[in-house]
C-alpha cells in the first residue's frame, strides 16, 4: 500500500476511535493499556486492510444534523405510536405507499430504509431498486414529505447527489 495522506489520516482517526472504545470497554483501567495498545494496533491494521481508506465524503456537519433530526423524529415516532397503543379508542388507518427514491444506488438507500422504521408512522417493508415500499400507520399523513426530508438529510450526510425521479 502506498503511504498517502489519506492512509495516514485514516490510521490516526481509526486509532483514536479504537482507543476510545478500549477505554470504555476497560472502564479506563490504566494497567490494561499494554494489551490495549497491541490490540488497537492489530485492529487498525486489519481495518485498513479490510476497509481501505477512501476519499471521505461524509460531512461532519451533515452527520450532526442527521443525528439531531433522527433523535427528534424518533422521539416523535415513539410518542405517536405509544399514544396510539394506549388510547382507549382504536384508530389505525394503515396503508402501503410506494415512493421512488432520489438517492443513488448503494448504502444511502439502505440507510434510509432502515432509519425510516424508527421515524414517525413509517415502516420500510421493501426496497427494490429505487422503489421504496412503506407501511404507514395513518394513510392520510403526509408521508412523502417526511420521507423527502429524511432523504435530503441522508444525502447531505453522505455527500450524495439526489437524482430526479
Amino acid at each position: 500500500m502506498k503511504l498517502s495522506v489519506a492512509a495516514v489520516r485514516a490510521f490516526l482517526w481509526r486509532s483514536a476511535l479504537l482507543a476510545a472504545l478500549w477505554w470504555a470497554l476497560t472502564d479506563g483501567r490504566a494497567d490494561s493499556w499494554g494489551v490495549g495498545s497491541v490490540s488497537i494496533l492489530a485492529a487498525v491494521s486489519l481495518s485498513l486492510r479490510l476497509l481501505p481508506p477512501v476519499p471521505t465524503t461524509v460531512s461532519r456537519i451533515g452527520l450532526l444534523r442527521f443525528a439531531v433530526f433522527f433523535f427528534v423524529q424518533s422521539l416523535r415516532g415513539g410518542i405517536q405510536v405509544a399514544w396510539l397503543a394506549l388510547r382507549p379508542r382504536f384508530s389505525l388507518r394503515p396503508a402501503i405507499h410506494e415512493i421512488p427514491l432520489r438517492l443513488p444506488e448503494g448504502i444511502g438507500r439502505v440507510l434510509l430504509a432502515n432509519t425510516l422504521s424508527l421515524l414517525p408512522g413509517t415502516l420500510s417493508v421493501g426496497l427494490e431498486g429505487r422503489r421504496l415500499c412503506l407501511h404507514v400507520l395513518d394513510a392520510a399523513a403526509p408521508t412523502e414529505v417526511e420521507v423527502r426530508r429524511a432523504e435530503t438529510r441522508v444525502a447531505h450526510m453522505l455527500g450524495l447527489k439526489l437524482e430526479e425521479t
Partner: peptide, 17 residues
C-alpha cells in the same frame, strides 16, 4: 395492534425510545 406490520411499528419505535 392487529397485524405483524403494526406490531413492528410499536416495537421498533416505542421500545427503542
Amino acid at each position: 395492534f392487529p397485524d405483524v406490520y403494526t406490531r413492528l411499528h410499536a416495537l421498533a419505535k416505542a421500545d427503542n425510545l
